[in-house]
C-alpha cells in the first residue's frame, strides 16, 4: 500500500537564512491519523504549507497521495482537503455560499455540489445557520464550517493545522469526534497541534517537531513508555515518611512528589504496586492515598526537547515564519 504522505529531507528556509524546517523524513500510511506536535515556531505550519502546495520546499521532496508536491501540485490539490490555522473565512459570505464556492473550486457539477454542501452542513450541525453570514458565527461554528468546506470533494488526505487552537472544550470535543468519524470512514488525517491531549486522543502516531527537526516519532503509548517508567505516588500518614522512603528504595528510585507526597518508579511495571503496598503494610506504615502516574506526552516533549510547550520566543518566530518576511502593521480595511 502506498504511503498517503511521504517526505525525504524536506526543508524550507526563508530570506535571511531563517531555517524553518531543516530536513524532515516522515511517512504516513493510508487511513492513519498522524499528529505533528510542537510549540509555536517549531516548523509545523511551514511543513503543512509545503505538503499542501502553498509553499515550495527549498530542499528535499515530499509526495501526498502519491503525487509530488512540487511537480504534480494540481494532482495533490485534487486529493487533499485543507483547513488552515485560524480559519480564514470571509465574514461577508454565508456558510452555504462558502460551501458552494468550495464545491465550484473543485469543479464539482452544480447539483452534486449542492447535495454535498447540504449534507456536510447538516453533518457539522450548521444547517440552521447556513444562510447567516460567517461574520456572525462563533469560533466553534467557524472551525466546523472550515472543516466541512475542506470535505466537499471527499479528499483522500485531510490536513488540519491546529484545528482546535483557541476553542472552548465543548467545541474542541465536537471537532475531535468529527475527525475520528472521518478517519473511521477511511480518510487519512494529518494534523498539527500544540495540545498534547489532542495528539494523545486522536493520533495513531505522533511526530514531535522542534526547531525544524523531528525530535521523536512513534505511537503515543510507545513514546510515553520510551521515556520513563510509570511511578507510584503515595501519601504516607503522619511521621512515617522517612521510614517509608527506606522501604521504597528496595523497589525503585525514590523522589519527593508534590504536596509532600513521595513517589517511586515502577521499573517492573504496574504489577509491583501490590508488593509495595504489602511491604509498607508489613513495616506498619499507613497510607492516606496512592496513585499510579503514567508519563504524559508533555513529559515526552520535555524529555525529547529539553523544553516545555509554551515558549514565547518560539511563538514570535512562528509569526515571522507564516508571513515569510517582515510583518507590517495592517488595518482591517475593506474597500
Amino acid at each position: 500500500m502506498p504511503a498517503a504522505i511521504e517526505t525525504h529531507a524536506l526543508a524550507r528556509s526563508f530570506k535571511g537564512d531563517v531555517v524553518a524546517v531543516a530536513g524532515i523524513d516522515l511517512e504516513v500510511a493510508e487511513g492513519e491519523i498522524y499528529a505533528f506536535l510542537g510549540p509555536n515556531g517549531a516548523g509545523k505550519t511551514t511543513t503543512v504549507r509545503m505538503l499542501t502546495t502553498l509553499l515550495a520546499p527549498t530542499g528535499g521532496r515530499a509526495s501526498v497521495a502519491g503525487h509530488d508536491v512540487a511537480g504534480e501540485a494540481d494532482a495533490v490539490r485534487r486529493s487533499i482537503g485543507v483547513a488552515l490555522q485560524e480559519a480564514a473565512l470571509d465574514p461577508l459570505m454565508t456558510g452555504r455560499e462558502l460551501m458552494l464556492l468550495q464545491a465550484t473550486l473543485h469543479a464539482l457539477p452544480r447539483a452534486e455540489g449542492r447535495r454535498r454542501a447540504e449534507a456536510l452542513l447538516e453533518r457539522v450541525d450548521l444547517a440552521d445557520a447556513a444562510d447567516r453570514r460567517v461574520g456572525t458565527y462563533s469560533g466553534g461554528m467557524r472551525r466546523r464550517l472550515d472543516l466541512a468546506s475542506a470535505l466537499v470533494h471527499e479528499p483522500a488526505v485531510l490536513f488540519l493545522d491546529e484545528p482546535t487552537t483557541g476553542l472552548d472544550p465543548v467545541s474542541r470535543l465536537t471537532i475531535w469526534e468529527e475527525v475520528q468519524k472521518l478517519n473511521d470512514a477511511g480518510t487519512t488525517v494529518f494534523l498539527t497541534t500544540q495540545y498534547l491531549e489532542e495528539a494523545d486522543r486522536l493520533a495513531d502516531r505522533v511526530g514531535i517537531i522542534d526547531r525544524g527537526t523531528m525530535a521523536a516519532e512513534d505511537t503515543p503509548a510507545a513514546l510515553k513508555a520510551g521515556i520513563r517508567d510509570p511511578r507510584l505516588e503515595l501519601t504516607i500518614a503522619d511521621g512515617g515518611a522517612d521510614r517509608a522512603r527506606d522501604v521504597l528504595t528496595r523497589f525503585g528510585e525514590v523522589a519527593p512528589a508534590a504536596d509532600g507526597r513521595v513517589s517511586v518508579s515502577l521499573g517492573g511495571g504496574r504489577g509491583q504496586v501490590a508488593a509495595i503496598v504489602r511491604a509498607l503494610d508489613d513495616a506498619g506504615l499507613m497510607m492516606d492515598s496512592l496513585d499510579v502516574v503514567e508519563p504524559t506526552l508533555d513529559d515526552v516533549f520535555v524529555a525529547k526537547t529539553g523544553r516545555g510547550l509554551d515558549d514565547q520566543r518560539a511563538r514570535e518566530q512562528e509569526q515571522r515564519e507564516r508571513s515569510g518576511d517582515e510583518q507590517l502593521v495592517v488595518e482591517p480595511a475593506r474597500q
Binding site: I80, H106, S149, P332
Partner: peptide
C-alpha cells in the same frame, strides 16, 4: 487592496490550495 487583505488573512490560501 482586497486581494492583499485576503492574502494577509489567509483566505487566498483557500483558493491556492484548490485545484482550480
Amino acid at each position: 487592496v482586497n486581494l492583499a487583505r485576503d492574502i494577509e488573512q489567509g483566505w487566498f490560501d483557500r483558493l491556492l490550495a484548490s485545484p482550480a
